[in-house]
Simulated scan of single mutants.
Amino acid sequence: MTVERPDPPRCGGEREMLRVFLDFHRATLAMKCDGLSDEELRSLSMPPSTLSLLGLVRHMAEVERTWFRRVIAGEDVPLVWSAEGDFQEAYAAGSSTRVSAFGAWEAEVERAREIEAGAESLDVMGHQARWGEDVSLRFVMLHMIHEYARHNGHADFLREGIDGSVGA
C-alpha cells in the first residue's frame, strides 16, 4: 500500500487549511505503518508501556469517532474498543490485525470527513459530554491536528525501533 500524503497549501481559506493539515497528519500515521507486518505493528515501545503503532491507529479511530460522530454530529455510538468509554483500551493492540485496526480507523476518518463537509461552517457547535462543555467544529479540527501531530511523534520513534526507518 502506498500512502498519498497531501501537500498543505501555503495560503488559503481557514477551512481548506484545516482540512488539508488534518489529512496530512492522518496520512503521516498511515505512512509510519506502511509495509509492516501485523507482528511488527504490534511491537511495543518499551516496558512497561503497551504503546504500539497498531495501538496508535486503534486510538485514533476512537478519537475520530468521539470528536466528529459523538461530539459534532451528536451520534449515540459507543467507542470502538471499549464499552466503558476507556480510551486507554485502544492502545492495547493485543492480537489485533492491520485489517481490523485500519478498517475501523479508515471508516471513522471517512465518516469524520462527511460530518465536516456537511457542516455549514466551522462555528457549528457540538457537546463534549466528558467536559460538560460545548465546542466548535473549528476547535475539534484544531484539536485533531494536535492529537495526530503528538501521536505521529510517537509513531516516528516506534517505526525507527522496528526497522530503523526515520523521517517523513
Score class of each variant (00 low, 15 high):
106 E>H: 15
87 F>P: 09
96 S>C: 04
87 F>M: 13
78 P>S: 12
85 G>C: 07
103 G>P: 00
110 E>C: 01
71 V>I: 10
110 E>I: 03
71 V>W: 03
76 D>N: 11
85 G>E: 07
102 F>E: 09
111 R>F: 06
76 D>H: 08
86 D>I: 01
108 E>C: 14
67 W>F: 06
102 F>R: 03
85 G>S: 08
71 V>K: 02
93 A>I: 03
96 S>T: 03
87 F>L: 14
71 V>P: 04
83 A>Q: 15
81 W>T: 00
85 G>T: 06
81 W>G: 01
99 V>E: 15
104 A>W: 03
103 G>V: 03
69 R>N: 08
115 I>W: 08
88 Q>M: 15
109 V>Y: 07
93 A>R: 02
87 F>N: 10
105 W>C: 12
78 P>V: 08
106 E>F: 13
70 R>S: 07
102 F>M: 10
80 V>I: 15
108 E>N: 14
83 A>G: 15
95 S>Q: 13
103 G>C: 00
90 A>I: 03
85 G>R: 05
112 A>R: 01
74 G>Y: 08
110 E>D: 02
115 I>T: 10
73 A>W: 05
73 A>H: 05
71 V>A: 02
78 P>H: 08
69 R>K: 08
81 W>C: 00
93 A>H: 01
67 W>K: 00
73 A>C: 04
113 R>K: 14
95 S>E: 14
76 D>G: 04
68 F>C: 11
108 E>K: 13
101 A>D: 00
108 E>A: 14
91 Y>C: 03
80 V>R: 11
106 E>V: 12
77 V>T: 10
78 P>I: 08
86 D>R: 01
90 A>N: 04
105 W>Q: 11
108 E>M: 14
71 V>G: 03
67 W>M: 02
93 A>G: 02
92 A>W: 02
98 R>N: 06
86 D>A: 01
83 A>S: 15
87 F>W: 13
81 W>D: 00
86 D>T: 01
70 R>I: 08
68 F>G: 05
112 A>F: 01
114 E>Q: 15
69 R>W: 03
92 A>F: 05
114 E>L: 14
90 A>H: 04
72 I>V: 04
86 D>M: 00
94 G>T: 07
69 R>Y: 02
71 V>M: 04
93 A>F: 00
94 G>D: 09
102 F>Y: 09
77 V>Y: 04
97 T>W: 06
78 P>T: 10
74 G>I: 09
100 S>Y: 11
70 R>L: 04
91 Y>N: 07
88 Q>Y: 13
97 T>H: 07
115 I>Q: 10
79 L>I: 12
92 A>R: 12
85 G>F: 05
105 W>P: 08
83 A>H: 13
79 L>T: 12
68 F>H: 10
85 G>H: 06
82 S>R: 07
79 L>N: 14
114 E>S: 14
101 A>L: 02
85 G>M: 06
113 R>Q: 15
79 L>W: 14
100 S>V: 15
